[in-house]
């Protein structure tokens, strides 16, 4: 945009005030730039990550997941209302899927959080999953570190509309809230393995609709069958009208109180390392010509699967030796 007039009047930075200093003060433009740097990757991402190391803030991370259309964004909106009424600053990362075909995405989660756009105590960022499976995006751990360093009291993580196996959110959130709603499946769905098992708090949203009590009973019956000491509470909520949000917030607070607060950032670092290592290993193996040769050898019966796996991983671990005969 070439606006008539002075081009540089707009800068909010004072001299000697670096972009990272602004980030630490929670300046929205600097936070947004850092998040983009992380997403884009490359030298700027390395710089930001380097400066974020051991800069833990005190943010609590709450994750929300559940099937598409269950009301995640609406519930997040209501939860922001609640946090703001306690004068806590909130950052939201709302993940939507990228197209597996074109890589494009329409990010519409914040459509349902519109009434917080004018509130300077709320920062909302839409994130495209960019091909990452698991319900989040590969950049999420570092993006959480950015928001933590920016000093937000609470970070809300909204996952892609999840099926049954997108449990990644529970690795990054201090408290994981899983949503269900009436009409999404019978009691057999409730006993299947999956996201219900990683819930710290279970919410039955749209609890004013017929069948809500039945959904709640199915979930409670599922919990009774599980061999665990503590069960997550099952809470009826009508996110659209804010009903039940107080009880949900209390349950989230109780779950936080029961945890060691210092574990979060370190757990994020370990999980980010695990994911990055797997991604790098996958990339190296996919690019290794030996993959097809070993595949053919398995097919002929010359080598067994386990030995071939060992050979591929060894090659991926020391790529410099590949060029040797």
């Amino acid at each position: 945009m070439t606006v008539v007039g002075d081009d540089d009047t707009a800068s909010t930075a004072s001299p000697g005030d670096s972009l990272f200093d602004r980030l630490r003060r929670g300046d929205a433009a600097a936070v947004a730039r850092a998040l983009s740097a992380i997403e884009t990757g490359g030298p700027q991402a390395d710089v930001v990550r380097g400066r974020l190391q051991s800069l833990d803030g005190a943010a609590r991370v709450v994750g929300f997941s559940g099937p598409p259309g269950v009301g995640k964004s609406t519930l997040v909106n209501a939860y922001i209302d609640e946090l703001r009424s306690q004068a806590r600053s909130v950052a939201v990362l709302a993940v939507d899927p990228s197209s597996p075909v074109t890589g494009g995405a329409v990010l519409g989660d914040r459509t349902r959080m519109g009434n917080h756009t004018s509130d300077p105590g709320v920062f909302i960022r839409s994130v495209a999953s960019r091909g990452h499976l698991g319900g989040l995006a590969l950049s999420i751990p570092s993006m959480l570190d950015v928001l933590d360093a920016a000093g937000f009291d609470d970070i809300v993580l909204e996952a892609v509309g999840a099926g049954q196996s997108e449990v990644e959110i529970s690795h990054f959130a201090d408290t994981t809230v899983i949503l269900s709603a009436p009409g999404l499946g019978d009691d057999v769905q409730a006993i299947k393995a999956g996201i219900l098992e990683v819930a710290d708090v279970l919410v039955v949203n749209k609890a004013d609709l017929p069948g809500a009590d039945e959904t709640r009973r199915h979930l409670e019956a599922m919990l009774e069958l599980r061999d665990t000491v503590t069960s997550p509470p099952v809470l009826p909520v009508v996110a659209l009208h804010g009903n039940g949000i107080g009880a949900m917030t209390q349950a989230i607070d109780q779950n936080h109180a029961a945890q060691d607060a210092s574990c979060g950032p370190q757990r994020r670092a370990s999980e980010a390392l695990r994911q990055a290592a797997i991604a790098e290993l996958t990339r190296r193996i996919a690019a290794d010509p030996e993959l097809d040769r070993l595949g053919a050898a398995i097919h002929r019966g010359d080598i067994n699967l386990a030995d071939a796996v060992g050979a591929l991983i060894n090659r991926a671990a020391s790529p410099d030796e590949r060029n040797q005969p």
């Binding site: 990228s98 197209s99 074109t102 890589g103 494009g104 995405a105 329409v106 990010l107 914040r110 459509t111």
Partner: peptide, 11 residues
């Protein structure tokens, strides 16, 4: 979106 870009859409 179909051209591979990320669109933040508002009502």
């Amino acid at each position: 979106r179909d051209a591979g870009h990320e669109v933040v859409y508002t009502p």
